[in-house]
Design a protein around this nucleic acid. Sequence first.
DNA 1: GACCTGGTGGCAAGGGGTTGCCAAACGGTT
DNA 2: AACCGTTTGGCAACCCCTTGCCACCAGGTC
Lengths: 331, 331
Amino acid sequence: MSGPTIYDVAREAGVATSTVSRAFSNPNRVGATTRERVFAVAAELGYRPNPHARALLSGRHHTVAMVVSDITNPHYFELIRGAEQRAKASEYTLVLVNVEESPRVEWDQVQRLVPAVDGFVLAASRLPDENLRQVAGQRPVVLISRELPDLASVVLDHVEGCRRVVEHLASLGHRDLVYLAGPRNSWMAATRWSALQAATEENGLTARRIGPFTPKVAQGPAAADGALNAGATAVVAHNDLLAIGVLQRLAQRGVRVPEDVSVVGFDNIFAADLCTPGLTTLGGVHADVGRVAMELLLDAAAPAGRPEEQPRVVLPTELVLRGSTGPVRAP
Amino acid sequence: MSGPTIYDVAREAGVATSTVSRAFSNPNRVGATTRERVFAVAAELGYRPNPHARALLSGRHHTVAMVVSDITNPHYFELIRGAEQRAKASEYTLVLVNVEESPRVEWDQVQRLVPAVDGFVLAASRLPDENLRQVAGQRPVVLISRELPDLASVVLDHVEGCRRVVEHLASLGHRDLVYLAGPRNSWMAATRWSALQAATEENGLTARRIGPFTPKVAQGPAAADGALNAGATAVVAHNDLLAIGVLQRLAQRGVRVPEDVSVVGFDNIFAADLCTPGLTTLGGVHADVGRVAMELLLDAAAPAGRPEEQPRVVLPTELVLRGSTGPVRAP
DNA sequence: GACCTGGTGGCAAGGGGTTGCCAAACGGTT
DNA sequence: AACCGTTTGGCAACCCCTTGCCACCAGGTC
């Protein structure tokens, strides 16, 4: 069934199995001529080292897992793409797990994979802090869109980003904003809210929060109705999906955007510039986020062992202005 | 570093390692009381079977790979989601590989993974037929959006679907359509083109083809300009991304849709109903495609061995009418 | 009491590769 | 010719788990 082994190669090349093994894993431990013959025979036989046998002994699998909380959110595609690219570049295999916003599923899947992978990239993990620490005790972990002391993480700079959002709205004359909150167990949701609060205070605006909402288009109507009911002039949605749902509902109810209400999202997903009006949103280079996270993970998983201090990378955001924000309507 | 082994469990429980092994992999081969004690000790020690040691002997890894040709296309998200869900349900691990439209990368990655996975789902593979057969000789393979005799596949019914597209355009008075072709090595592109040809002939229309185009938004302008130059009244783009790019370019050039030109896409991606006007497109339940493909693969990879005949599943399409198609302009 | 039967559990041999340790081979010294 | 240091390659143990085969034991039969 499976292909030839080092034994076949060794026999064929007239050397010991250990020599074949070393020719592949530690080339300068074996003479040049011998090595060449081994390679030649291996190529001829179509030999490929069995990664499992290798992993068995070394405990290193050249495999990492990426866990995302909602694979249908286009935002994650970019993260995945960046991470996958980086992993591939180092010949690491990427295992993808979608946990559909469920901490329970996330925990089960991570535990199932612990013995099979060298590390985890957890994107927008919904696990409680102590579970994250547990996982980190078992394998190297890099968080995306979440921070925790002593764990490596990559996040976009939402403090700065939210300030830009608030300043933008303030410059348009808005005095009050309503934040449509993301899931309760989302670190990002909490971070955005406190960053918005800080920035509004700084700029003399008020901020209110309603929700939490599952950040999907389908939740848009509920969120939009809530915002209208609160008399909002400016709405900041937890992410673009929710914002798009809000836009749709507002249009349906005859509320004009941005004349009556301004709407801001987060992530700058693919669809954000296609909807009507285009969505003003706080973006960033998400593929880079994925790439950097994977890079940190590969470093941590490297034979050298993980460094003592866990890096915390903060990447810049970018406020993308489109048609969904405009001057506040005359009172 | 790694956790306890069956030896630890065996010692602690006062039984032989083989008993521990059997307690897990073949429970009714060992007495109830012994089994309970083994489980208790295992739980206490936090024992987890090492999947690699297991795979080494059985040759089965409980891991499958999914290869997609462009992970940034929202269309694939749904495929991935369906496949991931199905794999998870059977406790299979899903390895994701993005090959960025490159047959070379696809081949390298697949070969790299052959010894590590139980099978492959190849979505829109760009590999030549003979390479696909080679892979199928090494591991079970299920194709998505591609057919090949003797290989299992799951596709949407594009013959029927294209007929619906053509009938729709014909009913609006169009007498001629221009197909903006997908990549040269895309089976889907060839299939759509021949299905469109057949359907146009059947309905007394003419069809022309320009391209090929890489099916991304960025290629839209070139495609749109080509279509306008050809004097098209109805444009059928290889997929929604290209169609969206076309819509943008047409708007930019002041060409009205659908008054001057009708545009149709394929896939019904997330953004198709957000653009302006909404995109008429041939959709289908892509998550089901992924799910079914994974199901076939798991069947084929099952211990029973693969069945002799390779299933070819054809799922229904659905023509989604939106604003981008309308009556042909008066001549 | 001798014999059989079915149910349990242990022994030991892998499965494919890695690696510590040792020995042979080789070229050069004195 | 005896001696020495350095490569280079081989032996065998080990990684963790599975499984064919055999031994054992309790209970049932005649």
